[in-house]
Nucleic acid binder design. Structure first.
Length: 508
RNA sequence: GCGGGCGUAAUUCAGUGGUAGAAUGCCAGCUUCCCAAGCUGGACGUCAGGGGUUCGAAUCCCCUCGCCCGCUCCA
């Protein structure tokens, strides 16, 4: 079991799974590159997802929409407003506050201070309204009143955001007794801004999408009009998204550029609860089927106060990474919020005509939204194992065969007596269908270990007997079991093992 | 964004002011009929980047970038 990320990060670098982005220039925080093995792994995960939720279902279709969309999309979705809360930091106590919930209470005391000026105190309080915010300032003012006398007037109350810049220095923060410790309000906007066209004026402002979901909602009418789809049905999309995360952390887990695998599943309002329960289970089971069967995986329902205001239910699929329990996928019951918002902002009718009831309805939507990079990282963490073999450590990535970057390595046992030629012929036959790898160099034990570290589930070895009777040995990664298979059945055997129709024999 | 730690070969690390090292890995060859065996040879470093101090800096100082940990944040 993987205890910290260090060994995995170093293996990923060493074997070509994941590299720091633009490393030769010192890297860039929050961005990562997938190397030769990593790109296969991640692509296999995305392909498996696409096959399972689109190709093998009758009620799903796919979509691939642009990353940059009309900026109004992000007004409608709430990302432009919701992603940009101004925050204020206290330099003394390191606390952080929402600036729109901070009010300054200005007290004037009758007596003068040591400089002979009228004593005044600018006391900051926190709350949704001035009344809510008054507790801390009142308490502090009462203390000061003992020294400078009781104020004759009630305090003047100013929202921190409306305070003139020059006056900010006078403010005493909620958690300190010193003035001037608060920073100016700073906007923490997670949207990546850019400009469309060569002229960088404000009218050309656009955004890199922070999620793929809105492209699906924006195309809902197109798909309904052209796709011959009927409720209930879903639209799936895989693609890059971008968020200016305040603090990228934990290897690829929180990155600023990442890839999502999202479904918006549309249904009649009265069926939404059923479909929510269905997808909640279906998506959890998908991870279990592909190897996250340990107790490190869990399904957590959001508490009421955790829910977005438009959602009636949300569940997170979480994985216990070495750095903590973190979300892989969220399944949200979003009601008709998104379609309604887009109708409001676009002025277009996005309702659905139900043939049965002859009524127009606004479908409700269930959103299973998964992180492709997070899934990849979870499968990497889960796969990482160190076996003790005769006092030595055998490092193995136990990927599900469907995800393994290389499905099988074709190896001549020794580099002579016609074995390389026979092995190469098999390699050329197999690579038409599978990602396979040929290696004839060095001791076979070393080659087996190299494949273990790359997560290759099977090795096919051509030995002396192969030259006599046209059989090869299959070697299983997880238990090192070996058994003989006729060379003309190698392809069907490999396919059976990958698809799960065949299993590895108990003993060789 | 704050605080702390760190940054030397592909990886893990040693090197506290005076000629950049080890192990593993990698490459070539020999050997080898089954699990990182052995032998021979080989490549690989702007010591994260930039600036400063010094006769001389991987080493001391400053700045920047990146990674890790803890806060904070995560609509």
């Amino acid at each position: 079991m993987l205890e910290d990320m260090e060994k995995l990060v170093s293996l990923c670098k060493r074997r070509g799974f994941i590299f720091p982005s633009s490393e030769i220039y010192g890297g860039i925080n929050g961005f990562w590159d997938y190397g030769p093995l990593g790109v296969e792994l991640k692509r296999n995960i995305k392909d498996a997802w696409w096959q399972d939720v689109v190709q093998r279902r009758d009620d799903m279709v796919g979509l691939d929409c642009s990353i940059i969309m009309n900026p109004k999309v992000w007004e409608a979705s709430g990302h432009l407003g919701g992603f940009s809360d101004p925050m204020v930091d206290c330099k003394a106590t390191k606390e952080r506050y929402r600036a729109d919930q901070m009010y300054v209470f200005i007290y004037l005391f009758p007596q003068v201070n040591h400089k002979g000026e009228p004593a005044e105190a600018w006391l900051a309080g926190l709350g949704a309204s001035p009344e809510d915010a008054s507790a801390i300032p009142e308490k502090k003012a009462a203390k000061l009143a003992k020294k400078f006398g009781k104020p004759e007037q009630p305090p003047q109350i100013v929202p921190y955001l409306e305070l003139p810049e020059a006056d900010r220095e006078k403010v005493i923060g909620p958690s300190t007794d010193d003035r001037g410790t608060l920073t100016p309000p700073r906007s923490f906007n997670l949207m990546f801004r850019t400009f469309v066209g060569a002229l960088e004026d404000d009218s050309a402002t656009a955004y890199l999408r922070p999620e793929t979901a809105q492209g699906i909602f924006a195309n809902f009418k197109n798909v309904v009009d052209t796709g011959r789809v009927k409720l209930p049905f879903g639209i799936a999309q895989v693609g890059k998204s971008f968020r200016n995360e305040i603090n990228p952390r934990n290897f690829t887990f929180r990155s600023r550029e990442f890839e999502q695998m999202e479904i918006e599943f549309f249904c009649k309002p009265e069926d939404a609860a059923h479909w929510y329960a269905y997808w909640r289970k279906e998506r959890f089971d998908w991870y279990v089927r592909h190897g996250l069967q340990s107790d490190r995986l869990r399904l957590r329902d959001h508490d009421k106060d955790e829910l977005a205001f438009y959602s009636t239910a949300t569940a997170d699929i979480e994985y216990s990474f070495p750095f903590g329990v973190s979300e892989l996928e969220g399944i949200a019951h979003r009601g008709d919020y998104d379609l309604t918002q887009h109708m409001k902002f676009s002025g277009k009718d996005l309702t659905y005509f139900d043939e049965e009831s002859k009524a127009r309805i606004t479908p409700h939507v269930i959103e299973p939204s998964a992180g492709a990079d997070r899934a990849t990282l979870a499968f990497l963490c889960e796969a990482y194992t160190e076996d003790q073999v005769g006092g030595e450590i055998r490092t193995v990535l136990r990927f599900h065969p469907r995800f393994a970057p290389i499905k099988a390595a074709i190896l001549p046992l020794v580099k002579k007596e016609g074995m390389p030629e026979k092995a190469e012929a098999l390699y050329h036959a197999l690579r038409k269908r599978f990602a396979v790898f040929y290696d004839e160099k060095g001791a076979v034990g070393r080659r087996y270990r190299r494949q273990d570290e790359a997560g290759t589930p099977f090795c096919i070895t051509v030995d002396g007997q192969s030259l006599q009777d046209d059989t090869v040995t299959f070697r299983d990664r997880d238990r090192c079991v070996q058994w003989r298979v006729p060379i003309n059945q190698a392809e069907s055997t490999l396919r059976g093992l990958i698809d799960g129709d065949l299993t590895v024999p108990a003993v060789s």
